[in-house]
Simulated assay, not measured.
Amino acid sequence: MESQAVKLGIGQCDGVCVKELEEKLQQIQQALDAQDPAGFLDAEEAMLTCVFERAGNQTLMSFIRTLWARSRYYKMVGVKDVFETGNVALLYDEAAQFVAGATTQDENMALDAL
Rank of each mutant, 00 (worst) to 15 (best):
N87I: 11
L48T: 12
V82F: 08
Y74P: 01
Q26E: 15
M109I: 07
T104S: 10
N57Y: 01
L91K: 02
E94W: 10
F98R: 00
A69T: 10
R65C: 06
A113T: 00
V88E: 04
Q27E: 15
Q105R: 11
K80L: 12
M109G: 00
N57C: 06
D106Y: 03
D112K: 12
D36R: 07
G11N: 12
A102V: 09
G15C: 07
Q30D: 03
S3F: 13
D81W: 03
Q4F: 07
C17K: 05
I10E: 03
V79L: 10
A43Y: 08
T103H: 05
T85F: 00
M76W: 08
V18S: 13
K7T: 12
E107D: 07
V18R: 12
N108S: 02
A31L: 02
K19Q: 10
V16M: 14
I64M: 12
Y74T: 04
S3K: 14
V16S: 08
V51R: 02
I28A: 03
E84D: 01
Q58Y: 06
D33S: 04
E107R: 06
N108Q: 13
A100W: 02
D93R: 15
C50Y: 03
L111W: 09
L90P: 00
K19H: 08
I28T: 02
Q30E: 14
V16H: 11
Y74A: 06
C13K: 07
G101Y: 00
S71Q: 13
T85V: 06
K7P: 00
A38M: 12
C50L: 01
V99P: 01
M109A: 13
A5E: 09
F52G: 05
M47G: 04
E45S: 10
Q4D: 09
E2F: 03
L21T: 04
E107L: 12
V79E: 00
L60A: 14
T66N: 07
L114A: 04
D93P: 02
G9H: 00
Q26C: 03
Y92N: 02
I64A: 11
Q4G: 14
G101T: 01
D93F: 03
E84F: 06
A96T: 10
A95M: 13
S3V: 07
W68L: 05
E20F: 13
Q35C: 04
T103S: 14
R54A: 03
R65G: 09
A5I: 11
L25V: 10
L114K: 00
W68D: 08
V99W: 06
P37Y: 02
V6S: 04
V16F: 09
K80V: 06
V88C: 02
C17M: 11
A110M: 08
M76T: 10
A96V: 06
D36C: 01
A55E: 09
E84R: 08
T85R: 01
G78S: 04
D36N: 14
F83M: 01
R70M: 14
G78N: 11
V51D: 01
P37A: 09
A5Q: 11
S62K: 15
V79T: 05
R72Y: 09
I64Q: 08
L60Y: 08
S62F: 07
A102E: 08
T66P: 00
A100E: 14
L48V: 02
Q27M: 08
T85S: 11
E2C: 09
Q12L: 09
D14R: 06
D112Y: 05
M76L: 10
S71G: 09
